[in-house]
């Protein structure tokens, strides 16, 4: 078949599988996979690997972020410190919050890990650029 025709069909099917409804995808899985049990086993392994990697990356990232926050506290850089204070407002460990300079890296991770860190990250990046 002419390559232009083939390419157009390929491109269209690429978009179809990218966008199609979940029910359409489920039908395709049912229709085309004979060994469903084997398929699900493989899929479960890939899901586990992806989740494990995502968690590991998140931990590595939090450690790196905590180090940057610690440096900002040591240097007394105002913006990240004020954002950190805002983030940890109302924490159950007020003693930690009032003595930021006494925080260990692990304390910082504990305080920030479940927070929306976007503003804090931006402030640290701004500081890096200055």
């Amino acid at each position: 078949m002419n390559e232009n025709i083939i390419k157009r069909i390929d491109d269209a099917l690429f978009n179809f599988y990218l966008e199609a409804d979940e029910s359409i995808i489920n039908d395709s899985v049912k229709e085309n996979i004979l060994d469903r049990e084997g398929y699900e086993k493989k899929k479960k392994r890939f899901l586990f690997l992806a989740q494990a990697m995502a968690n590991k990356q998140k931990n590595d990232y939090l450690i790196s972020l905590a180090e940057q926050v610690q440096q900002a506290i040591e240097k007394g850089i105002e913006k990240p410190i004020s954002i950190l204070r805002k983030l940890i407002q109302g924490e159950t460990t007020p003693a930690l919050c009032s003595n930021l300079d006494k925080l260990s890296k692990e304390d910082i991770i504990e305080l920030i890990k479940e927070k929306n860190l976007l503003e804090l990250i931006e402030s640290l990046e701004e500081n890096d650029q200055e």
Partner: peptide, 23 residues
């Protein structure tokens, strides 16, 4: 980052979807 990106998709759905495309 990748960790955040992985959380933006339903991994179970995306694996089925990618598999359908591969087929």
């Amino acid at each position: 980052n990748l960790s955040e990106a992985l959380k933006t998709v339903d991994l179970n759905d995306i694996l089925d979807r990618l598999n359908a495309y591969a087929i």
